[in-house]
């Protein structure tokens, strides 16, 4: 029997439903997550299954959404809080950075600071400068947080379930452009541990570390490159903090070349951190300079051609590979 195929957004909703059913401390809160089923449809059916006691539609109050989720976690609940878009996490950065991330340390190792803060991330659908950003680097910079950014329906379901069960606060970023993408997701229970990368395609000539929207683009690029005789190995870190650097280093030792591809801005991006770690630990294995494929330091425009121009595409990855694999 062929494996069941469901969309990324359906996998998100399914993970949330399973975790609410499994643990009576788990609940969902955020703007439009209930009756509507999420502005992007990623919580569809959760309210129908559990009702308003476990699924709270909130006012447009980002600081209160995260602050309340934190307070509820400190008093024994395990909230899943949704901030509709990562762009708006800027509104509640105090709650995330100064409060949630530091609460365990500043309260003497309090055991209950378990919450997940979910948000849609990245661009590609013409939503413009305040609805298209990718801020994973902001959160990777903060000790106390875990940062997860899955790119397939299978991964998002297994990782979201692990995030809900994790005793630490987890920032969970869902690339908005991938919500409609379908893939195999088994019906039976499974979890994927946080902090474990996956080699999505094996190859011997170059390692490409990619996540978010850049993962499917990179896999397509790898196929194009294979037709031209270059075998790229594609590693999806899936969790960016803690980062599974060992899997990346192992791959680089095999291929001798590294590209990091992400949609976030190039300057200060997680790609820079990975490049630094690899040169610290595997400098002697590198046969070429490390390259980054990322959005140049611009503000994401709405116009389709302009947006396509600034966001890295499959071609951008192909060209970057060729520039160091000649």
């Amino acid at each position: 029997m062929p494996e069941r195929q469901i969309s990324y957004r359906e996998a998100v909703a399914e993970a949330i439903k399973e975790e609410i059913a499994r643990d009576d401390r788990v609940f969902l809160m955020g703007e439009d997550v209930g009756v509507l089923g999420g502005a992007f449809g990623s919580t569809k059916g959760v309210y129908d299954a559990f009702g308003g006691e476990r699924v709270l539609d909130t006012p447009i109050s980002e600081t209160a959404i995260v602050g309340y989720a934190l307070g509820a976690a400190m008093a024994g609940m395990r909230p899943i809080a949704e901030i509709m878009r990562v762009d708006w996490m800027t509104i509640c950065m105090d709650e995330i950075v100064n409060q949630t991330a530091k609460m365990r340390f500043l309260s003497g190792g309090h055991p209950d600071v378990a919450l997940v803060i979910r948000a849609a991330a990245e661009g590609g659908i013409g939503l413009g400068g305040q609805h298209s950003q990718s801020f994973e680097a902001w959160f990777v910079h903060i000790p106390g947080l875990k940062v997860v950014m899955p790119s397939t329906p299978y991964d998002v379901k297994g990782l979201l379930k692990s995030a809900v069960r994790d005793p630490n606060p987890v920032i969970f970023l869902e690339p908005g452009v991938l919500y409609g993408v379908s893939g195999p997701v088994p019906e039976e229970e499974y979890v994927i541990p946080l902090g474990k990368a996956e080699v999505k395609r094996e190859g011997k000539d170059i390692t490409i570390v990619a996540w978010g929207t850049l993962l499917p683009k990179t896999l397509n690029a790898a196929q194009t490159l294979a037709n031209e005789g270059i075998e790229a190995e594609v590693v999806d870190p899936r969790t960016l903090r803690p980062l599974d650097i060992d899997t990346i280093i192992d791959s680089v030792k095999k291929t001798g070349r590294l590209i990091i591809a992400h949609e976030a801005m190039k300057t200060g991006g997680v790609g820079a951190e990975i490049a630094a770690l690899v040169q610290e630990r595997a400098f002697d294995h590198l046969d070429a300079p490390i390259k980054r494929v990322a959005t140049p330091d611009v503000i994401i425009p709405v116009n389709r051609s302009l947006e396509r121009l600034v966001l890295p595409q499959e071609d951008t990855v192909v060209e970057a590979v060729k520039s160091i694999c000649s």
């Binding site: 602050g67 309340y68 307070g71 509820a72 976690a73 024994g76 409060q99």
Partner: peptide, 18 residues
């Protein structure tokens, strides 16, 4: 952080209610 505890206190109340 001035004012940060207000939301947290509300969230503790939410947990109590739930």
């Amino acid at each position: 952080i001035v004012g940060a505890g207000i939301n947290i206190a509300g969230g503790v109340g939410l947990a109590i209610k739930m």
